[in-house]
Design a protein around this nucleic acid. Structure first.
Lengths: 269, 269
DNA sequence: AACGATTTGTTCGTATGTATC
DNA sequence: TGATACATACGAACAAATCGT
């Protein structure tokens, strides 16, 4: 009797799912049926289901029923590449298409902003300095896959990178464009963490409204050959359908798993 | 009336927390007080709090109250280093201690196992082949920080790496030890994903029992100069107190933030 | 050590709203 | 349109944990 009833019910159902007694995508018994099976009230049954929902095992759909969630093919992103990322966009398109998936980026939303504390610290500029913000929504197979925002110091525009402040895709990627303007990225540093999504992210990624699926947040800071920082790219994507690869040293090329798709966070237009 | 009441209450409380009207560690009004404030029933107030709990913003303690969770200093791990990782252990110890934190690894639990599908696929051996499994619990400041399991093909032992099957720390790390036996790691590949913790992980990391905090799972496969795979290291750590850094190309050395601690997943004894 | 007050945890019942088929 | 199934919201009672007296 140590365990509350709703936990016992949840445990029992979880067991049936793991054993395969209830297969992926299949419907659970309705709340009414579960009331009978476990001799519990509807609220108690619902508490048990809520626990499974929080753990990401099942998904309730109003008017239909509760279903065992189906795992999606993870989207694989390679974080290590050539610092001079001119080819990264090509890799992105090639490999995504090779996986039979269709990539699509929204038209960038370009804004001139003043740097907040995070941006200023990342770019080693002063808080309040002007920066260009370029924001894009990225899709695969019409599924929302990542939200990306890049920040560039306004001084880059003064140095001739005028296309940064145009609300159009930069063919080949902004990093390659800047390289052509004499600002060649010689290195970058990524910082990966996980946090709860905000309302906008929850809506865009169509994440369950209970906020149970966290998102990856990747900060990429790019460096020029004088050691200065010329860009900060923040990529946000759901943690339940993404995986990241890091290759160091000599790593033989491997055949990508048939179901995997590969992209890079640098395909910023 | 679009938003249900319990969400409105949750949103309002979340705002007060973000603005700082309720500071970290402070107690929220009791359920009774919230009932009065929002003119709602206790169950509705509890639903709102449950939402905040799921998002990791607050924590309810029976008999005491509900409190705003306090964020811990994230533990920073650098995933890119020298492939020949002999020095990584030194970096680990130096930087962790520089951060004023005390690292501690458990004595390794060494087992001879037959490779399961995942291990076999990662090491490119057959399922059922014998492998050495070395498992360690890693702590910082007596706080559980990561669970690490390394798998080596049994053939390495035949080639002279006999210390792999001894249940003692390998000074300088197993990778350096193997390099001394002629098996020098020339590269590795990490794969980072996030998933719900299992029961053991939940208990070890003292994660909230509702399974709301996911864990990072990092697979590191090491390669020798002939392109073969000689080890698989799986590192699991809570996603709420860890961050990962990846450096590519020329990245100037930066002063680590005062509150950050740096380690590497390769400090396998 | 015992007790009461406070606070959250669990479980029931009931009614009504909303989404889907 | 009706039936079904989940979502929200109310009220009530008792259990369990915590803290101070």
């Amino acid at each position: 009797m140590a365990e509350p009833m709703y936990r016992q019910i949840a445990e029992d159902l979880r067991g049936k799912i793991e054993v395969g007694e209830i297969v992926q995508g299949a419907q659970l018994p309705t709340e009414i049926e579960l009331m009978d099976q476990y001799d519990a009230s509807r609220n108690t049954v619902r508490d048990a289901i809520k626990l499974l929902t929080t753990r990401g095992l099942v998904e309730a759909r109003a008017g239909q029923g509760t279903f065992v969630v189906e795992k999606v093919n993870p989207f694989v992103t390679i974080l290590t590449g050539e610092p001079d990322a001119g080819v990264e966009t090509d890799i992105y398109i090639a490999e995504v298409k090779a996986g039979g998936r269709e990539p699509h980026n929204s038209t960038p939303r370009v804004e001139i902003q003043t740097a907040n504390a995070v941006v200023a610290d990342s770019l080693r500029i002063d808080e309040g300095d002007q920066v260009v913000s370029r924001h894009q929504e990225r899709f695969i197979d019409r599924t929302p896959w990542s939200l990306q925002t890049s920040f560039y110091p306004m001084s880059l525009v003064d140095k001739g990178a005028t296309r940064l402040i145009q609300a159009t895709d930069i063919a080949g990627g902004a990093v390659a464009y800047l390289a052509g303007k004499g600002m060649k990225q010689v290195g970058y540093r990524d910082s990966i963490s996980v946090r709860a999504p905000d309302d906008h992210e929850q809506a865009f990624f169509k994440l369950p409204s209970d906020g149970r699926v966290p998102v990856f947040e990747i900060f990429r800071v790019g460096f020029l050959d004088d050691g200065s920082r010329f860009r900060l790219t923040i990529t946000v994507c759901p943690s339940d359908r993404n995986r990241f690869l890091i290759k160091v040293g000599e790593v033989p090329a491997t055949v990508a798993p048939h179901d995997a798709t590969v992209a890079t966070p640098d395909s910023q237009g």
